[in-house]
Amino acid sequence: MKNFDLDIEEGEFLAVLGHNGSGKSTLARLMNGLLLPDKGTVEVFGTALTEKNLYDVRRNVGVVFQNPDNQTVSMLVEDDVAFGAENVGLTREEIGERIAFALSAVGMEEYRHATVARLSGGQKQRIAIAGVLALKPRVLVLDESTAMLDPRGRREIMDVVLRLNREEHITVVLITHFMEEALLSSRAVVMNRGEIVMQGAPSDIFERHEELLTYNLTLPRIGEICKKLQAGGMNVPDTLDVEILAEAIAASLRSS
């Protein structure tokens, strides 16, 4: 990464896009001090991150990683979710409450006593999110947390993340290479070779699709259809919404 400047507002839902190897994951590790920058600073809620305040920063910035199998500390769901809360020295009662809160936030209450190994990929990843939520962070970073899931698992995670952002007002940083997921964000940035090369509302970014292609990113499939229809001479807007596109096609057919 070089010359990297990025401000993230509290309560925001930020999507970070980029192909494999664009520096996205380094960004995730910088945000909670798993890596410290060679040059420059990372400020979290107004305090610069140093080796001394790592602990407090990590309480506030939770990171969920890619592989659902490699984040489980304990064999039982309950114990696994408790891990973070135990680390910061809460009392038993507090930990119990945190587990209940975190599991209900990801919709996994009924699995409290289940064995992690028997859950599906999406469920395991929800447990990983719960494990982070048990620390009551104000920021949730998802580092390609949906990349290894099937579509159902991916949907589960996105539902949870959206709800956390809207209802619990947790700031979300979603690092992904799925364009469809980025559509749900309030702001998107595109990374290439460790730099931010594009940023703005997701729909604005997808409008600049030639530029996206140069960063080895593709349009979401629906964007591709819009472009092809336009190329065929049909008057449809760049949209990422099925209904809007269908309406535009219908209107265009009616007028001709």
Partner: peptide, 15 residues
């Protein structure tokens, strides 16, 4: 698939 979703959306509009 997305194309099938679009087909349904168009069908609703009589196309």
């Amino acid at each position: 698939p997305l194309t099938a979703k679009l087909r349904l959306a168009l069908l609703k509009r009589g196309i």
